[in-house]
């Protein structure tokens, strides 16, 4: 995690660092504005009439270099540093766009890539696994353990934390196996065996290490470890990783989101069930039936997150 953070901070600083070379030619920052707008920022003011010449810019989606996007209007901000290109049609911001700007001397500078920030994309995977596609309430996975361990808040927290740890470790291991063994040797059909094997291995390893290193923690959390294997979320995450061909950072975010989502679901559910114990429930609904109905209501609430886009 630290490594990724440092890497990204460095990258971000690099992009944002004010560069004073070739003031007029150099674009210091580029991003999407409104749905049909790309904003270019220059480190120093540039000439307004030059900047407003549409022939100066060529813009296309990276995957379709032969189809140029038509520029309708070019606005330059008052201080002359911000140029916004307005297009006839709205842009597909999910795709990387390439903007080439011709310099004053007619020489073309290399294409500037305009895309959503990668960190934002990673966060969107996290949010998606946590809320939008919550594994319990919208993908309906891990229900046996979910209903089994959501009776008390303390159990719910313990289970959620242990589960998240095992999930992250096993998903990252699965990623290595998938990328460096299953794909190169065309052994994709062994996915199930390899992934479930890695999960069991992780659980066993965490069990042994925890028992030796921190027996007190083991006493409180050890019981949940066995349950982790019987949870289908833990095998679903590597399978989703494989079908979407995620890279290392994306896999990390996905597993963290899945684990966090499970923790969240368990916590919400256990809070309700602790109260249900005090309520006067018809005898036919006591126990699991009412828990299912509550879960259904949560699922409907989580449906509201559907289509949420933060980044």
């Amino acid at each position: 995690m630290h490594r990724i953070l440092t890497y990204w901070t460095a990258a971000l600083l690099f992009i944002l660092a004010p560069v004073c070379l070739h003031a007029a030619d150099f674009v210091s920052e580029q991003r999407f504005g409104d749905e049909n707008e790309i904003i270019l920022t220059y480190p120093a003011a540039i000439d307004k009439t030059v900047a407003q010449n549409p022939a100066r810019y060529t813009v296309f989606e990276e995957a379709d270099p032969d189809i140029r996007l038509e520029i309708q209007k070019i606005d330059v901000s008052d201080d002359g540093r911000k140029v916004s290109l307005l297009f006839k049609e709205s842009l597909n911001t999910a795709k990387t766009h390439v903007v080439s700007v011709r310099g004053d001397d007619g020489r073309e500078i290399e294409g500037i890539q305009v895309k959503k920030s990668y960190l934002g994309y990673l966060l969107s995977i996290l949010i998606s696994a946590l809320l939008v596609n919550n594994f319990v309430f919208t993908k309906y996975l891990g229900l046996c353990v979910f209903f089994g361990t959501s009776k008390r808040k303390t159990t719910a927290k313990g289970m959620g934390v242990v589960f998240t740890i095992v999930m992250v470790v096993s998903a990252l291991m699965s990623w290595f196996f998938y990328q460096f063994i299953l794909i190169p040797y065309d052994l994709n059909f062994l996915q199930i065996v390899v992934f479930i094997g890695l999960v069991s291995l992780t659980v066993q390893a965490v069990d042994t290490i925890l028992r030796k290193v921190n027996p007190i923690l083991f006493n409180s959390f050890g019981v949940f470890l066995v349950l982790v294997i019987a949870n289908c979320v833990i095998i679903a995450v590597p399978l989703i990783m494989a079908s979407n061909n995620y890279n290392f950072a994306e896999t990390f975010m996905l597993s963290l989101g899945a684990g966090g989502g499970f923790l969240l679901a368990l916590y919400l559910m256990s809070s309700v069930r602790e109260r249900l114990d005090l309520a006067n429930i018809p005898p036919t609904f006591k126990g699991l039936p009412i828990a299912f109905i509550v879960a259904g209501q949560f699922a409907m609430a989580f449906l509201g997150f559907s289509g949420l886009q933060l980044f």
């Binding site: 036919t284 039936p289 109905i293 989580f302």
Partner: peptide, 15 residues
Amino acid sequence: LPSAGFFVVGLMMAF
């Protein structure tokens, strides 16, 4: 709808 699965299972268990 996806979330109805919970209700159906819960109601059938109750039944």
